[in-house]
């Protein structure tokens, strides 16, 4: 995983609350056995018409959204299933951060393992972001701040270990494998053979 320290991008805005994982990536695209290539199916049922042509009024299909790496969504993003295909689709599409007022637990956990930064901001900052689609914002993991083009900086919470992993490109599996002695001791104590 590539280390992430700062992100700077115009925002793409999807002002819909409670966007669930079935919208992020519909179940019919889960019949894959790899992680790659899901970006083209991201928000498939909102993004494409019945004929498969992109819907021009969908925010991600507007020319301004091209190349944006920060997605701002309505309240409570990522509820629903545990499918890691949701962050895989978002990162394959090109997003590196998702900003909302609340982010569902399993989605957040999956995002952190795939270099997608979940950023939870206060309602006032969130409202500003929703009203100013395309604003150039920056996200700094060192200081855990999101800075608006107005210069206003907002701190966001990020679990310290997940932040360390993101900033250093470390994956958790390596850390867990390094706990071998403790795991073996637990198993011996619990009588697991």
């Amino acid at each position: 995983m590539k280390p992430i320290r700062t992100l700077r991008s115009r925002t793409a805005v999807l002002a819909v609350s409670d966007i669930d994982t079935d919208q992020i990536i519909p179940a019919r695209f889960l019949t894959t056995t790899t992680r790659e290539g899901l970006g083209k199916h991201l928000f498939a049922d909102w993004r494409y018409g019945p004929d498969g042509a992109p819907k021009t009024d969908f925010p991600l299909n507007r020319p301004q959204a091209e190349g944006c790496t920060i997605l701002v969504a309505g309240n409570n993003f990522g509820c629903g299933s545990s499918r890691e295909h949701a962050p895989w689709a978002l990162t394959d599409y090109g997003f590196r951060a998702v900003v909302s007022t609340q982010i569902a637990d399993i989605f957040r956990s999956n995002s952190l393992k795939n270099g997608l930064v979940p950023v939870i901001v206060d309602p006032a900052t969130h409202r500003w972001l929703l009203e100013n689609a395309g604003a150039e914002v920056s996200i700094d993991l060192e200081t855990t701040t999101l800075t608006l083009p107005t210069g206003q900086a907002t701190r966001f919470a990020l679990e310290p270990f997940a932040r360390y992993c993101l900033m250093n490109g470390v994956d958790e599996l390596g850390f867990l494998l390094g706990r071998e002695a403790r795991i073996a001791a637990y198993e011996a104590h619990a009588g697991i053979a």
Binding site: S82, E84, S109, N110, K113, E159, F161, L176, L177, R179
Partner: peptide, 22 residues
């Protein structure tokens, strides 16, 4: 509780997960 596929790999390899206490 439900987990993502990366964590499925963690459990297969180590029988453990890294979790913050809810």
């Amino acid at each position: 509780f439900g987990i993502g596929t990366t964590e499925v790999g963690h459990v297969l390899a180590t029988q453990c997960l890294l979790q913050r206490k809810p």
